[in-house]
């Protein structure tokens, strides 16, 4: 079987991996010059379904709880299983209790417990929630490695071309073009996210830290080489323009509140991505004729792409004999996309 995958973001590459392992001939095409140039490249890379459950439906936890295992099996060495730390400034203790009441899989830490996990935060917060089973990875590094691995497995890549002109000669087409389907896939909308990257050698963190705030909850994810990704806003807008002054100010304030050391850090990048989302903020696999659309990963790209990839593999009939086939049931009721404007 020959399958064409449109879109070289986290959805396209995880599906390519799942299919290639099952022996399918796969080609990945993208209009961009490389992998991960859309929303995937601005992701936090947190594999944190227990924390996400605070505001996300249960499906995010059931589908996402195996994500770290998937990434670790696909790309050994990329996944850090250090958990997530959730803190709040003293006067926002109520936010921490609220977060705890909506989630599971955590333990309460006192000052000593926080200091033991993250010495840099010693004395800064009275209590915290520790989600031991969560993990994180560096999205750009992970996608670059996955690209190389797929090349080694014989997956073909074509960049900088219109994917719609490539589909002759393929048995199936999987469309993972994310925000480019807004307007043609029913109810798909844009949720703007802004992020920034700080660089400092004055502080070390071992795990993502979420800072709760009644108005602007934010997270900081440590990367290698003294880099810290700070994110992310969620704005109902399809504007892809640069980060606003207000968002920049709020993100920097959060970093500074977490530790004053970040005040001296270098601001080396700001970015804006458009997350495609359906009204319930859950991803969908939509089948139409030979074409399969996987979209609506919202803020859960790295978390839910593996589960979506397994569903695509099973739908195409390439899932048989695979080791991890716990997801037999449809992930989400499939829908028929809008008739107009969808590429055949």
């Amino acid at each position: 079987m020959r399958v064409l995958i449109k879109g070289a973001g986290v959805a396209g590459l995880t599906i390519a991996h799942e299919l290639a392992i099952a022996g399918v001939t796969v080609k990945v095409v993208d209009t961009a010059p490389g992998v991960g140039t859309g929303a995937s490249g601005y992701a936090g890379g947190m594999l944190a379904p227990w924390c996400e459950r605070e505001s996300a439906p249960d499906a995010v936890l059931t589908l996402g709880s195996k994500a770290a295992d998937w990434w670790n099996a696909a790309l050994p060495g990329h996944v850090r299983r250090n958990g997530t730390l959730v803190v709040a400034p003293a006067r926002d203790d109520a936010e921490l209790r609220r977060f705890a009441s909506r989630t599971s899989g955590f333990t309460w830490l006192d000052e000593a417990g926080i200091a033991a996990l993250e010495p840099a935060l010693a004395g800064r917060f009275r209590q915290a929630l520790f989600f031991r089973n969560e993990a994180h990875l560096d999205p750009r590094a992970a996608l670059a490695s996955l690209h190389l691995k797929l090349l080694g497995m014989g997956v073909a890549f074509s960049f900088g071309i219109d994917p719609d002109e490539e589909q002759a000669g393929f048995d199936r087409v999987v469309d993972c073009t994310g925000r480019h389907r807004i307007g043609s896939l029913n109810d798909l909308r844009a949720v703007r996210g802004e992020m920034l990257v700080l660089k400092t050698s004055e502080i070390t963190l071992s795990r993502p830290v979420r800072l709760l705030h009644p108005r602007i909850p934010l997270y900081i994810v440590p990367r290698d080489n003294g880099l810290f990704m700070v994110g992310a806003t969620m704005i109902e807008s399809e504007d892809k323009g640069p980060i606003t002054a207000r968002s920049l100010m709020e993100l920097l304030n959060a970093a500074y509140t977490l530790h004053p050391c970040f005040g001296e850090a270098q601001l080396i990048e700001t970015g804006t991505g458009i997350r495609p989302a359906f009204p319930d903020n859950l991803p969908q696999m939509i089948e139409q004729d030979r074409q399969i659309f996987v979209n609506g990963l919202y803020r859960h790209g790295f978390l839910l792409a593996p589960a979506m990839a397994r569903q695509v593999a099973e739908t195409i009939g390439a899932g048989a004999g695979r080791a991890h086939r716990s997801q037999r049931r449809p992930i989400h009721p499939t829908r028929v996309p809008a008739q107009e404007g969808v590429a055949p």
Binding site: R189, I235, E236, S237
Partner: peptide, 16 residues
Amino acid sequence: RREMARGQQGGAFFGM
């Protein structure tokens, strides 16, 4: 203020 796409009539969220 925050939800308005610049010059795009607010997009899908406003539509909904």
